[in-house]
Design a protein around this nucleic acid. Structure first.
Lengths: 174, 174
DNA sequence: ACCAGAAAGTCTCATATGAGACCATCTCGA
DNA sequence: TCGAGATGGTCTCATATGAGACTTTCTGGT
């Protein structure tokens, strides 16, 4: 499933008495922090992305490609891969599809003809503008329970974690 | 791609001068916090999970099912859905596959014959024991850059976020 | 200047996944 | 007690994805 609007907690009489509420399951796993990050993020991301997929007919790689392009025009497929966590085959497919739909435009990089820089078209920008507000709003809702100070601290810690990713991501092979 | 061991930063002379390092891209997106959570989590989770998928021949739903069962035996498919963020069709398939492999065992719930409680077999526990250490280790590596106090604070904030998920997850339909 | 190896991007193939229909069982109100 | 609707779980079908081969272009060492 995904964010189900129905939780099976509460009155379910068939459960053993020691079965607890949400809190007992959230983080019940060994991987306390990782699990919680996934839990929260799933509820944030999945519904929004699925919605975009269905309503606008975009795949996930296409969605994130537009997000990256909005941030910085001229990026290449590999850069999007690098920071989005999608496989290059999928980003490649997404880019091809986006170009076919006239949402982006490709230009060969003059100094390296293997690369192609990507640019949004007006249509691409317009489509982006249609789905980004919901994502923004949902992020806001997700963070609404934090105080201003907590939010800042959370962001600071995430920054720190993100900055250190390269130090352990290389443990890939281990 | 996924955590690529190669980053295209640094000496790439072909890039415009204002193109920055990692930090300039991470969080460059509008969705500052959500993006960073996804970024960090991807690098944590994807490589490990892919590894498990390939080496042990498990699908993601199967992996998380074992994780949940290790936490609490007797849970049902819906409960795993509820907290894992996987669709019930996939968890169902995973459970069927796990049973076929003798890694779990199913028992009809006596008070509600629609439900089936799930239990690990010895083989299931053994398999779980083979992959969980890497996940634990990787979580540790991910958090290694935080001080003890920061780590605690991060966990506290995540708890708070997780606890409040139900309050905004219902915004699904909006 | 050349060659071995890396990198960018595309393609193919098998598989995992999402959406939603479907069946059986349960719950709750009339 | 009955029937409508909810819920647990399975299934089917189309599609998105992961793995990895492949082509072309670039790089760095000799």
């Amino acid at each position: 499933m995904r964010p189900s609007r129905k939780s099976s907690n509460g009155t379910t009489k068939s459960l053993p008495p020691e079965r607890g509420p949400l809190a007992a399951v959230i983080g019940g796993t060994e991987l306390q922090i990782a699990y919680r990050m996934g839990y929260v993020l799933n509820f944030y991301r999945e519904p929004s992305f699925r919605r975009i997929e269905m309503e606008l007919g975009l795949t996930r790689p296409e969605i994130v490609t537009l997000i990256f392009l909005n941030f910085r025009e001229g990026v290449t497929a590999s850069e999007i891969c690098e920071f989005s966590g999608h496989l290059k085959a999928n980003i490649s497919r997404g880019i091809i599809a986006l170009e076919k739909k006239k949402l982006i435009r490709r230009a060969a990089d003059k100094t390296d003809s293997r690369r192609q820089q990507l640019f949004m078209t007006a249509a691409g920008r317009a489509l982006y503008a249609r789905y980004i507000p919901a994502l923004r709003e949902r992020e806001r809702a997700m963070l609404a329970c934090l105080t201003r100070a907590e939010r800042n601290e959370f962001e600071r810690l995430l920054d720190k974690l993100a900055a250190h990713v390269p130090q352990w991501a290389a443990l890939d092979e281990l």
